[in-house]
Design a protein around this nucleic acid. Structure first.
Lengths: 132, 132
DNA sequence: TTTTAAATGCAACTAGGTTGCATTTATGTT
DNA sequence: AACATAAATGCAACCTAGTTGCATTTAAAA
């Protein structure tokens, strides 16, 4: 499974990559650098981790999210072309970041002369776990 | 003018704050830390700058923008309640960040149990200056 | 099995942003 | 005008995310 995905994307299947991929597949929400660091303690070097995050992103295995925390988060799955119908939900209580499909397409009017290529949306609120 | 705004917001009018405020008022686009650093060279210490950015943000004089560059940008004006009808346009050529009003309201469907408080949108594309 | 390009680990670095503390300054009070 | 005081400033030291150069190791093709 992990091997198949890596092979399919033209990436060598190393111990580090399998561990990282497995970690992403086990989760339903986005991971910060420090999340990954603590979860994979001792398994992956910092620069190796970042280099693999970059490779995975280029290969479309994960995508990088910029919530408004100032640092990036990383989540399984590829961002669709144009960025539409995909949004990131940031819980204001537990700070967890979830990826979600958004059924209503986002339309925007930009001023004369500006060309839109891509729209990315951050939704802030309270997640299901914290709300109940 | 600068003094009035500061007084109105309950902030002491210091040299540093007037310089910073003046700088923001002269611009139509958002400023990164390094933009501010070079523009205000020698005038403002780093920690003073950050502390004032925080004060200004709390007072609603500026707002903080997280485009996808990994670092924050700061722009004149307050973010409206709920975050709707305000978006940030990031030029993919010159990396300039513009604040813009968006006439089409953004509606989103989030899953059962999730409560939305605020929506923030980043639009990527080509700005008017770079497009022509 | 040999080869080779790619992946890893380590150390050193950069940059944005924060904090503690001593000094200075804006502003309200006598 | 002089004083008192809380807030603002400047400096140094620090923290953390993310990057880079380089020597070593490893996956995988020949």
């Amino acid at each position: 499974m992990y091997e198949q995905l890596l092979e399919q994307k033209g990436l060598k299947k190393t111990k580090v990559r399998v561990a990282l991929l497995q970690h992403f597949l086990n989760l339903d929400h986005a991971q910060s650098y420090s999340d990954l660091k603590f979860s994979l303690e001792g398994e992956i070097d910092k620069s190796t981790l970042y280099r693999n995050l970059t490779s995975f992103e280029k290969a479309g295995i994960i995508h990088r999210i910029n919530d408004h925390s100032g640092t990036s988060k990383y989540a399984f799955g590829e961002l669709p072309e144009g960025g539409h119908d995909h949004a990131h939900f940031v819980c204001e209580t537990c700070e967890t970041v979830y990826c979600m499909e958004v059924s209503t397409p986002i339309e925007l009017n930009v001023p004369e002369g500006f060309q839109t290529n891509n729209v990315q949306t951050i939704i802030k609120g309270i997640c299901a776990k914290c709300y109940s």
